[in-house]
């Protein structure tokens, strides 16, 4: 069976600087893969490269056999990859409802609708007519996650969703991920918070200076090995 996402020898360049080197990665349907790595390891660039929003990208990335290089971001989103960008990137003067609706309009048809998102995050129903910039950081992250989920993705990319949030809120956000997976959605989680990230993942990949330095199952890897490959002490 072909994996949902298969990436081979992916490189990302910003002018002369190479952010990602020859990364290979597969993600199966309904699988949760966590990408860990230090700041600047190329994690965000990798996610953005999947939706064609990074600098210059070489190598291949396929979603269910379909080559993503030939598609625009818009088409990739319609095919079923949705990104929850680092820093949330909501539209601050639009209402919560409008922010969510844009996600829905751009995505695939599917069974995740407003009712489902409101069920996951009841506060968004209450505040549907508030502007995004009036929300707390945690609520904004819920909107960002909701916006991506309303696109009914087959593959959800989460970039640092815990950043700057209180642990209680992060718990609430991460509680959704297994429920999303139950619907057959694959999830790639990028985090600097290693323990949080490993707790939710089936598999993990560690990036170091743009390359995969370690991969495996969270249960099989001990903390010291991970740390070495995280900070590059092993080299």
């Amino acid at each position: 069976m072909t994996p949902l996402l298969s990436v081979e020898k992916l490189n990302v360049f910003y002018d002369a600087f190479q952010a990602v080197h020859d990364v290979d990665l597969t993600v199966g349907e309904g699988e949760i893969v966590s990408i860990i790595g230090a700041n600047g390891a190329g994690k965000s660039s990798f996610l953005k490269a999947l939706v064609r929003q990074a600098g210059r990208v070489t190598g291949s990335a396929r979603l269910d056999g379909c080559d993503l290089a030939a598609l625009s971001t818009r088409e990739i989103v319609a095919k079923g990859i949705a990104l929850v960008p680092e820093g949330r990137k909501l539209f601050p003067t639009l209402t919560i409802f409008e922010n969510l609706r844009i996600g829905q309009e751009l995505g695939r048809k599917g069974d995740i609708g407003f009712e489902q998102v409101y069920e996951w995050f009841p506060v968004l129903r209450e505040r549907r007519d508030s502007r995004a910039r009036e929300l707390s950081g945690g609520q904004q992250q819920m909107v960002a996650l909701g916006r991506a989920l309303l696109a009914n993705p087959r593959l959800l990319l989460c970039d640092e969703i815990s950043l700057g949030l209180a642990p209680r809120v992060v718990n609430e956000l991460y509680a959704i991920i297994p429920q999303v997976r139950e619907r057959g959605v694959a999830v790639v989680v990028v985090e600097q918070d290693i323990s949080r990230s490993l707790a939710v993942a089936d598999r993990f990949v560690c990036f170091l200076e743009g390359e995969v330095s370690l991969s495996g199952r969270p249960a099989d890897a001990d903390r010291d090995t991970i740390m070495q490959h995280y900070f590059g002490g092993a080299h």
Partner: peptide, 8 residues
């Protein structure tokens, strides 16, 4: 290059 470009 867009000024807001961030890497990693």
């Amino acid at each position: 290059a867009p000024a807001a470009r961030t890497v990693g």
